[in-house]
Design a protein around this nucleic acid. Sequence first.
DNA 1: CACGCCCATAGTTCAGAAGC
DNA 2: GCTTCTGAACTATGGGCGTG
Length: 296
Amino acid sequence: MDALLNGNSTFLELVNGWLGYIVKHDYSKATYASYSSKLRHLLQYVGHIKLNELTREELQSIFVLIEMEKISPNTIGNIYSITKKVFHFAIKMGVMKENITDHLVLPKRKPYVPKVYRKLEVTRLLSLTKGSKLDIPVTLAVNVGLRRGEILSLQWKDIDFVHNTILVNKGTSAPDVDHFPKSDSSIRLLKLPKKVGNMLKDHLVEQKNSFLKFGITHDVNTLLFCKNDATRYNATSLNKMFKKLLIDNKLPIIRFHDLRHTYATMAHNNGMPVKHLSRSLGHSTPAITVEQYVHI
DNA sequence: CACGCCCATAGTTCAGAAGC
DNA sequence: GCTTCTGAACTATGGGCGTG
């Protein structure tokens, strides 16, 4: 720590100290990026103010200003929880006495209600993607309920055509391309629906042929869904391609991740027990499944 | 122009803790 | 036991930019 941090330091200096000395070391890169960008909302108003001149009332008025920027209540909640950590750090470092983030009044967070496709729209979507680049990711999302990051990092060694299973044990997150599961319960061995298995078999043959043509090695580490040169697609590109497909074909606009919600809703409506569905999605408890994914 | 990458920032997911 | 809150890590979106 720059032993220089004291009551006369500015809020900006405090934030930089916390980000650089704590967050950079103890948290993931994605979290670091998320924290620093959210703190900018505060810095624009109070970055220059000295710590011993910052008051709870002032902080409260800053949150009102942020609300006026049309930032959603959920995001304001996020900004608040990060801010609280910053001041907690200040207290720990002995540069502030009380945590001025206590008892602030904030807008209530609202649950997100995803859009899901009905059977008819799913059928239409699948007929559109058939044979196209998006065939694999869309099918895996809508028929197996995989997350985007899980699809992007699936390798052929994760597919077992003998036992008809698919092993989900890694993910890909923006802005990095790190591999990690969302949580321990996200690691799971799933049954591969017959039609998906068949589709993957066909895809494997096609991919091998295409690789041969370009002189690229194909092995068990090859990604299921990748570009012609075997490299991974950028996660945001997948979203863009998906959205374009919907616009071009006048399908209702949903997010790629909503295909996972669609899968869950359909499975539930088809009578899949919640416990089973929860395992299939990789949730730690069935309560999450019911709360977040089943939209009738 | 279409495609794909990178970056910045907003918003969502989901586990675990806290509160009832 | 449940519901609600918190927080880390994820996904979404859009602009800019390079390539073909």
